[in-house]
Design a binder for these strands. Structure first.
Lengths: 211, 211
DNA sequence: TAGATTGTTAATCGATTAACAATC
DNA sequence: TAGATTGTTAATCGATTAACAATC
């Protein structure tokens, strides 16, 4: 397992896979050229070819990439060989939306437990996912072998939650709280800050209008 | 209004502002040094100083940056001088979560209208935001002078929605649909692909564990 | 074969970082 | 003043892109 894989390549592979699955399922196409996939993904053809090189998949100069094989290769690269368990912390509006969205979507990447401070939520089931009290977290994470977590708690609680997750063995986090989490270098954090992103969209909307 | 402002600088400024507001409001601190702000934001001190240069704010070598002034400067740079109207398209779970989250948060950046295909939603009010039918979109956007939009519709509808938004004068979009939107160069798109981000977190969780 | 595409290296580009004189 | 920090330039770094021989 190689750590120096570019962050962006991993993100693009995830996008390629979805685009290719569409081509395969809906349009029944069997092969793509790098420039076709590139156009769909909004990247350059050279970038697609470099990404293929990174995952070690080869196409044919005549026919391009065999979609079915390529989807398989991306899966072998991106996905865990067996179930990778995910936990979600903070069952508010956003947390519930995410639980609903992911329910039964990827067999090998499943949200197996949700946690919340509110004792009334413990014991309930939301979109097939069981909700636990916050105190049960270390025990449940260990029992279910959770390595990845989604943080949807308010900003003020996020660092405490992150600390607890790290000490419970979680190594990858998707953080929706608008704070910079302090974690050891051995832990990966992907930030999704909706406020920042909206402010960016608003800022550049004005830039573009003015120019 | 300058178009060559780095994308990432804008994102960092948004984060700085929130960190500084905290320092000011909760800890009553008046000044920060670049390395302090950098530590909180998870960036380098040089980066903070360069960002200050970009927005044209100067600190003092002795005392650092005056937080209140700096927050003001960031506001002048980032925010619209008057109300900047935002629309949200797609009132599903995620859309509702975002409406709730942003309600009354930033006075100058407000979600003024929501749209959905479901005719039952038209006319309802969710977290102070009125919901309209999809057909009313062009008219409402123009009337309310909307320049920025949040797309929370399913992937299959996203491109059509984007086209409609562009033709109604929207110049900045925050896109949650897992597709690459085709828009003119004059329109800015910020993508938030939750699936891709979770797959990245899961991938690197495995990398880190294995190493 | 001829022609388009692939795999891969070298060149380019832009963002980050290091460095340091100017400043308080 | 002495010392730490700022503003700003130059060097570094890494990712993207261009280019082209190898391939089908």
């Amino acid at each position: 397992m190689n750590v120096q894989i570019p962050d962006k390549t991993v993100g693009r592979l995830s996008l390629y896979r979805r685009l290719l699955s569409n081509l395969l399922g809906i349009e029944k196409v069997k092969f793509v050229f790098s420039h076709q996939l590139a156009k769909d993904a909004g990247v350059t053809a050279a970038q697609v070819r470099r990404d293929m090189m990174i995952i070690g998949y080869s196409g044919s100069p005549k026919r391009g990439y065999a979609i079915e094989e390529l989807v398989e290769s991306i899966g072998q690269f991106l996905d865990a060989p067996d179930l990778q368990a995910v936990a979600l912390i903070g069952v508010g509006n956003l947390g519930r939306a995410i639980l609903t969205y992911f329910a039964g979507r990827r067999p090998n990447l499943r949200i197996v437990a949700a946690f919340d401070n509110d004792p009334n939520k413990a014991g309930t089931v939301i979109s097939e996912c069981r909700c636990y009290a916050m105190q049960e977290m270390p025990e449940v994470l260990e029992k279910k072998n959770v390595t990845t977590a989604i943080i949807t708690v308010p900003a003020g609680q996020a660092q405490d939650v992150a600390d607890l997750l790290v000490s419970s063995g979680v190594r990858g986090m998707l953080n929706f709280a608008p704070v910079n989490l302090r974690v050891p270098a051995s832990v990966y954090v992907e930030d999704m800050d909706i406020t920042t992103s909206l402010e960016k969209a608003a800022f550049f909307a004005r830039c573009r209008t003015a120019s």
